[in-house]
Design a protein around this nucleic acid. Structure first.
Lengths: 336, 336
DNA sequence: ACTTTTGTCTAAAACGTTTTAAATAATGAA
DNA sequence: TTCATTATTTAAAACGTTTTAGACAAAAGT
């Protein structure tokens, strides 16, 4: 059974391809097709399961009704939940989502952006960029390309953003730890550490320490490499045990680090020596509700990030919104 | 800066669009273009960043280099890991992936399949179907559409499958529990329970009980609804506590149930009464390495499912493989 | 020297839409 | 009636590729 096309409908209904196309696209009035004809066409077509060829339409109109999403790691629940939220938001408006994973790799992100716009012809993209600078995106060839950046901010780059208040969330966490009598708070950060999210969280950590009259010791700030989390955490812990036995809290800057830290603490000798240390985490995950250890965390409005970024992007595509928007969402502290 | 197209190249290089297209598609020899010309074209184009218009090409050739993936729930790590694996496999071969989530809803799955093939013009799909019967997929209009089914089998449907040995894995779990002196093993199943994965796991559970000379008590087999997991688990637990106080193990048929069960056990009164009950889970997650409770589980070769299904689908698309393949992967027991 | 074959290359058709420009029919004014 | 205007419809062009069929030289056969 061959796929029905406009030509077939035309023959069957006795109208031209043009007319049918116009009616089906809801432009009957605009082109002055009589109400009667419009009704007749719609009626006849309704039980004929015709769907226009996507590629022909896209070729002619330049619109694909496709949106690309680039995240650092799609198997991270933070991003996969955002993806899900974006998808359902777009679905309502007749758009489709292509999800891509950059694996925190600039080269790959670049390839993905180019592929999406050039080869796939998406109408716009949503990106959690792992780039250090905005050079890729400021290129003139992308000047008119609808883009929304989420999660991470790029420096010196005036664009559309949907992010969260990382600084504020970080301050909340440290304040909460201090309130619980912690005096020496280590911080496990993650590289690439130029990421705006990480930078802001680190700044929040530092400033909050200061505000609480605690000394900032750079040795307590450990950078964990994204590609080598477990090993780096072990090293950081060894280091703490050797030089800073009196650390009473570890604040992890994202869910991945917290989760891996908990795993390491379970596995090894640290179990005893560090059983009473307080752990806090930026980014809340279900796990924290299950384990015995009381973990204070900051939860991000994940659904909301997806929702807002999707509708912002659609506004940009439809040119309803032409100014740059910067949406900053609030986090919420979960004390356990 | 307008996008470069074949016409522009033709003018610039002094050859016809035809010739350039042929060379760029690696069909120079086939069409008898001289080596010298081919080299010249390739060389000239290489630093001109031309990418053919996706839609024009797809319109003409009927190939989109797109593959669709439909899973029940993209925010479930089991599926998001499969998605990631499929994506990277396809990426190597120049294909792209569109990920869709059916939310365990037949109506929605149907819509997605139709959308993918009709509107999006994908070259093939990979589906973890939530359908009870294969009626949708046996329709003649899909007869020639490349499809690979993963995770779940549809009854009476001869198709391409990549699944795992659910029955065997389930037997392994029960055997392990019995070995650990469990005498009365409850089973928390999930609806829709006609899913082949669930059916097979239930059968494995039943048969293994029998083999171990344990009585099968249908009251110990609780169905948890996918859309109401937490409440249903609470009900099931209440029920056990009332009628079967001597249950010494709960075997959960998927990660979602196990995780939620753990959460419920933590939150509430059950904490005390059920602290010594043994918990086992089909499908392993990181969480189990972190919590104190020793959870025996069966782990699925997630990466492998993605890898095998992707390459099988590509073979079908390329018509290298024309027979139906049924790939059944082994699970591995993790005793804790 | 003339036809045939071979080696390169290109014009034009095709893919299935949407949109422009123009044709036809119907109505109103003169 | 006839011409101008308006309402309705359609033919043809366009989107940017790939592929078919054929053009043109050069080489090879006779």
């Amino acid at each position: 059974m061959k796929k029905l096309q406009l030509e077939d409908l035309a023959k069957q209904l006795g109208y031209s391809k043009t007319l049918i196309s116009m009616v089906l696209n809801g432009k009957g009035d605009q082109y002055g097709i009589s109400k009667k004809t419009q009704a007749a066409v719609l009626n006849a077509v309704s039980d004929l399961d015709y769907t226009p060829n996507k590629f022909a339409r896209a070729l002619r109109t330049g619109k694909s009704f496709f949106v690309g999403l680039i995240v650092a790691d799609i198997s991270n629940p933070f991003y996969s939940t955002i993806a899900k939220s974006i998808e359902s938001q777009l679905f309502e408006k007749g758009y489709n989502l292509m999800v891509c994973s950059s694996e925190e790799n600039e080269e790959r992100e670049k390839k993905l952006v180019e592929m999406l716009f050039n080869q796939q012809g998406v109408d716009g993209i949503i990106v959690a960029s792992c780039f250090k600078s905005a050079d890729l995106y400021t290129q003139s060839r992308f000047y008119k390309s609808p883009m929304v950046f989420i999660d991470r901010l790029l420096p010196m780059f005036n664009a559309n953003y949907v992010i969260i208040d990382n600084y504020g969330g970080s301050v909340d966490i440290v304040n909460s730890l201090v309130k619980n009598k912690c005096k020496k708070i280590a911080c496990f950060s993650i590289t690439p550490s130029y990421l705006s999210t990480i930078e802001d969280r680190i700044n929040g950590y530092k400033d909050a320490l200061k505000k609480n009259n605690l000394e900032l010791d750079e040795n307590l700030l450990k950078a964990i490499n994204f590609n080598n989390i477990e090993q780096d955490i072990i090293m950081a812990l060894d280091n703490l045990l050797k030089n800073d036995k009196d650390v009473d809290a570890i604040y992890c800057l994202n869910n991945n680090i917290t989760t891996t830290l908990l795993k390491v603490l379970k596995d090894t000798k640290y179990n005893k020596s560090l059983s009473k240390i307080k752990i806090a985490s930026f980014d809340d995950v279900t796990l924290f509700d299950i384990i015995d250890r009381k973990i204070t965390s900051v939860s991000q409005p994940v659904e909301e990030i997806g929702k807002q970024s999707a509708s912002l992007l659609l506004e940009i595509i439809d040119e309803t919104q032409t100014n740059k928007s910067n949406i900053v969402l609030k986090t919420s502290l979960i004390e356990r």
